[in-house]
Amino acid sequence: MISRSTQNTIFTGLTCAAFFICTGLLCGLIITIIFKGLPALSLSFLFSPAQDFGASGGILYQILGTLLMVIVAAIFVVPIALGSAIYSSEYLRSHRKKRILELSLLALNGVPSITFGLFGLILFVNILGTGISWMVGSIILAIMMVPTTTLSTLQSMQSLPMTYRENGYALGFNRSQVIRYIVIPQGLQGLVTGLLIGLARAIGETAPIMFIATAFSGVTVPISVVEPVSTLPTHILSLTQQATNPDALKNAWGASLVLIILVFIISLSAFYARSKLKNLSQRV
């Protein structure tokens, strides 16, 4: 038998090792990207258009394209997520239906992103004939963001104790007023957190938008909704395909660093939003 204190030491050691593997991987990754990407980074890199398929010039239109697509996607997501969360938490009475909604959202969340890309290609580009369009990309990204956003909104709405709603009714509110004044402020925190987590994921997606929304070179700011854009992830993909060219590779690392910084900013805002928009229930 191993003595109890040895057991304790082994257990502590194992958890410690797990912790260091986890953080070590993350740090290693970030440090590599910073080291490799930093030489490429400069103001002119950020603010000038790509030339020569990205091997020279900067990534201005890639940054703009990425931001445009995810911001529009977020605008699509908010009403859908908020609406379905309100419907499920305030109007659906049967637990079975709530469960079905939750399970289907979880299932949607588990669908591989390339499948969404194919779906978009078939439905929008082939059947509806939109052509390669950044708007279609935004719609597909929005579909991918809906599950996390809805689930987290729903969770924070359901964590609101019934007494708050009852106090609202007692003040003479009808149901829509209770939802507007009491339930939505509570759900906001979950909405923002879920949305930002979804955004952080969507901003790095390549597969779903590759065939339907982006072009690899020669795009600037779109003037209509049925034009392609270029985005950071697809740009990185095209740069790494020219890996024999050291300039292209350097810019690929630079673009990766910018992408990681964007993800980081979004994640930090998620944390900030979570702490700012505290639960009604937590403050009591």
Binding site: T163, Y164, E166, N167, A170, L171, I182, K278, L280, R283, V284
Partner: peptide, 11 residues
């Protein structure tokens, strides 16, 4: 008007 057993103020 109604006041509940447990005070419930909004944050």
């Amino acid at each position: 008007g109604m006041v509940f057993q447990k005070p419930c103020v909004f944050p």
